[in-house]
Amino acid sequence: MLHLILFSVFGLVCVAGAVNLLLQRHPINSALSLVVVMGALAVEYLLLGAEFVAAVQVIVYAGAIMVLFVFVIMLLNAGEEEHTHGSRVAWLLGLPGMLAVTVLICWGLIQDQTSSVRIGELPGHPADIAQLLFHQFLLPFEVTSILVLIAIMGAVVLAARPESVRETKREH
């Protein structure tokens, strides 16, 4: 019972953080709302029993990626955004679309009771996850790591100064 209450409370915190992320005008407030969303999600994972995933969620997303976001906002000294009202198409198509997707997801969840997990019963022990990652899903795991490596190399190439790019071209 306590688990259910906590689960609902942190679910609400998560949604509130997400709404606040959109409503805030200053980028740093939005970034911090996203940190709150990440933290609340980690608590949800923890309540479900996936301790390892919860810890990794905090370390990777809240502790590393969002710090970089905040760092960039600080470095660029980004000011307040100007909000526009948005186009009429977005209102006309967006709202019904959102409703339709919500109904679809709810219907799917109600129909398919077999794949849902009871609170605290998700197999989240680090050893289980290691078994899955390094035995059953080894190939996708390695492919993903190569993908990330390519992305990093791409970022380095894009961030390289134009002079150095020109120099390498002349060498060829």
Partner: peptide, 11 residues
């Protein structure tokens, strides 16, 4: 991991 996660938020 809990210690690492919490200290990484200290930044």
């Amino acid at each position: 991991l809990v210690v690492l996660g919490i200290t990484s938020l200290g930044v």
